[in-house]
Design a protein around this nucleic acid. Structure first.
Lengths: 332, 332
DNA sequence: TTGAAAGCGCTACCAG
DNA sequence: CTGGTAGCGCTTTCAA
């Protein structure tokens, strides 16, 4: 029922081999016959059977992409970047959502590995050890995007340590001396650890003694933001907060409103990520914008250039975008 | 280099055929040998080559999913629903982002059609005619989710006509007589047309004369919301707006703030969609919540039950979720 | 520039 | 319950 190369070949009095060459623009062939072949293919409604091609070539141009279901909305931006770059280089993206159910995760990864992928890109995903090992046995290349992992997985992300330094400096320059870091107190993802350390070290550089109470919140959620003000009580013991994600920042903003605080008069906020969410609030959130789209593009480039070795760590720059949530303090 | 069924068969003194049966739990086989085979497979680090399987079976369990790049964030919810259901029934989802570049769209669809998919699901996507025809020639089943299309494409969505009626009734019951509909004045997507008609007819049922000026805005965007108040000027000629999407509602909310209006005292807002975004605002948005997750689940179910004929139109219920953006007017 | 033929890894049929 | 085998549609030598 389905139209195959053979069918086209028969109709064109050619061999399947030639048709294959023509339709793939590979090798040499006569331009005139080529034109004919293409029209025939068109008229017959031919669709390449990619499975057969992959099988025959023992390789595909498919990149598997893992996205967390609890879909941090910057994933879109990364994908946008990847998609363009992938399209131009003839790669396909196989995007798969990655839930929390471990059973399901395993099955998902196995399904991916069952299609001789070129590579697996993980967007902001933290994988468990068994899964990591599963991938390892398959010899498929892996890359973590936006998330630094240990386990020797190559990554493309912001330099989270340096980012904290920039943020602290920014706040310091605006006269802030007491600042809190919200949403990075977990031990697990390396990113949180790195940010904490960067925060502490940056404070030290300004001779500010680090107050352990000022690092709080072990998850990334709106609710965490909402609870932040109640957690510390008013008057707040600090003048500024660094929020580990935009969604947290919105929670803080609303929590402040609920507590009768004025932002930025009573509290300054700077938000890490800088997705569109930061533009939807009143006041608009000052943010440390990560270049997600570029991360996506670089991911493909790195793959093409064979740079996905174990120790690769590519950094993209961040940019601090002034909004309306940072108050400049007169004297310190 | 790669481990194949044959390798396992050799090691287990079996035929590839048997190994295939065992590893797929198909047909009859001896449980003991099965156990052996599985351990061997494990130890050899075997991964099924799905391309070969698909080729051999001339069929795959893969459902292609098209998501607009301008990623209305309810897509996530739909996918969540689909993913669970798909997982339980052994289907794979091949998610593909669908940009605006026509060239790229074509290539994307062709890539999809090159893998004997079971079906293509389109999430809130409006396809152009050539693409529609392309899909048609391939005989792959299609389903539009959350978006009603013409062209005889089966769909799962809310009953947009009835939704408008419910919304208008809700506003009416709260004393509103002058209401506007924002973001549905485009001619193109059928959804907009249906909503307009539903709006007008619902008003008529309450003997409210329909004012054409009160249907405004031909796109779905934050900016549209922001411009709404300036567009009409204050004092507003209506007491309530129905916003065609959450992102528009947020724009309206901010626009109102900018104009010095109090919501809901000076303006009531009800938002269509009811994604998490509605919970992030102050005041919280009253909304007509669509059941996106259910749409996703039903999509898979419909596929399984072979219900994807041309005229299928499955509706899921909406629910009006009271927030803080509707004022009850005393007298009318 | 084109063709013949082998083979990718798996499944399905039919025999045993 | 198991094995032999043909064949899915495509690519890729190698030879013509």
């Amino acid at each position: 029922m389905t139209v195959t190369l053979k069918d086209i070949a028969k109709k064109a009095n050619l061999s399947p081999a030639s048709v294959s060459r023509i339709l793939n623009n590979r090798g040499r062939f006569n331009d005139d016959t080529a034109k004919q072949v293409r029209t025939i293919a068109q008229s017959l409604g031919y669709f390449k059977n990619q499975s057969a091609a992959d099988l025959s070539q023992k390789q595909s141009r498919v990149i598997g992409v893992l996205i967390p279901t609890a879909h941090t909305n910057f994933a879109d931006e990364i994908i946008k970047g990847m998609q363009n770059e992938a399209y131009e280089n003839g790669y396909e993206l196989l995007i798969t959502f990655f839930g929390n159910d471990h059973q399901q995760q395993m099955q998902t990864v196995k399904a991916l590995l069952s299609r001789q992928l070129l590579a697996i890109f993980m967007l902001a995903v933290d994988i468990t050890l068994p899964i990591h090992q599963l991938i390892k046995t398959s010899n498929i290349q892996v890359l973590s995007i936006s998330n630094q992992l240990n386990d020797g997985v190559p990554s493309i992300s912001s330099d989270n340590y340096d980012m904290m330094s920039q943020i602290v400096n920014y706040l310091y320059d605006h006269g802030h001396r007491q600042m809190a870091l919200i949403g990075s107190s977990m031990i697990e993802p390396v990113v949180a650890t790195v940010r904490r350390q960067g925060f502490i070290d940056a404070l030290a550089k300004h001779n500010i003694k680090y107050n352990p109470d000022f690092i709080w919140g072990n998850n990334i959620s709106y609710e965490l933001g909402l609870q932040t003000i109640p957690h510390y009580g008013t008057p707040l013991p600090f003048t500024a907060v660094i929020s580990s994600a935009d969604i947290i920042s919105i929670g803080i903003l609303n929590g402040a409103k609920d507590a009768g605080l004025q932002v930025p008069n009573d509290l300054s906020i700077i938000s890490i990520d800088g997705t569109e969410l930061t533009q939807l609030t009143r006041p608009i959130l000052t943010n440390a914008k990560q270049n997600f789209q570029l991360m996506g593009e670089l991911a493909i480039t790195a793959l093409i250039n064979n740079q996905l070795s174990t120790n690769t760590a590519i950094y993209t720059d961040i940019e601090i975008i002034a909004g309306q949530t940072i108050r400049t303090l007169k004297d310190s």
